[in-house]
């Protein structure tokens, strides 16, 4: 999460609809492969697009493996390290209606940037129970890490400059499936 300049314009398309779907399919296969199947695998998506991506991954695995994996929703507002720098916090519910104890939790988010959101998510998850393992699935890794965090599954590696923004657009929220890179409009 980063503060965005007020006006952005699209610079380039990173993933089109088909490429986005292929990336998710690949990640689904990788999850099954790395964990030797779907046993004890659960998904936790980060609000808001991470949840949607987690649901799609679960659906993919259901179609490949037949397993119906649970998907939970995590709101990390209460764990952010920058609460003092934002306005009054907007908290939405965390909803993980299953036990994560001794499970393999695949944490899903759309973009990995500084790593601070994932740090908060790890703390939040561990407060909810003791999983056997936590893995991280990311659609776009744009670099610029500030913490020692590395994803297990990556849809696309995308070198960016800090002034650019990566927008993941999903049909459920934005009416289309695309990933674009944006840059500030020149004044």
């Amino acid at each position: 999460m980063t503060a965005r300049p007020s006006r952005l314009r699209e610079k380039a398309e990173v993933l089109d609809t088909a490429a986005l779907d292929r990336a998710l399919t690949r990640i689904a296969h990788e999850i099954l492969e790395k964990n030797g199947g779907a046993k004890d695998v659960t998904f936790v998506g980060l609000r808001t697009r991470g949840v949607t991506l987690a649901q799609r991954l679960a659906a993919k695995i259901a179609s490949i493996d037949g397993a119906s994996l649970p998907v939970g929703t995590l709101d990390i507002t209460l764990y952010r390290d920058d609460l003092d720098m934002i306005g009054a916090p907007v908290v939405r519910a965390t909803d993980i209606p299953f036990s994560i104890k001794d499970k393999t939790v695949v944490l899903v988010d759309d973009v990995l940037f500084t790593g601070r959101t994932i740090r908060a998510a790890l703390d939040a998850l561990i407060d909810l129970g003791r999983p056997k393992m936590i893995q991280l699935a990311i659609l776009v890794d744009r670099g610029h890490r500030e913490l020692p965090i590395r994803p297990d599954y990556i849809g696309k590696n995308l070198p960016t400059s800090r002034r650019e923004a990566v927008a993941v657009r999903l049909t459920e929220h934005d009416g289309e499936d695309r990933v674009v890179i944006e840059e500030p409009e020149e004044a």
Binding site: G87, P89, V91
Partner: peptide, 10 residues
């Protein structure tokens, strides 16, 4: 949370 959680200045 709403009173003390945000940026105190704002």
């Amino acid at each position: 949370l709403l009173l003390a959680g945000g940026r105190s200045g704002e």
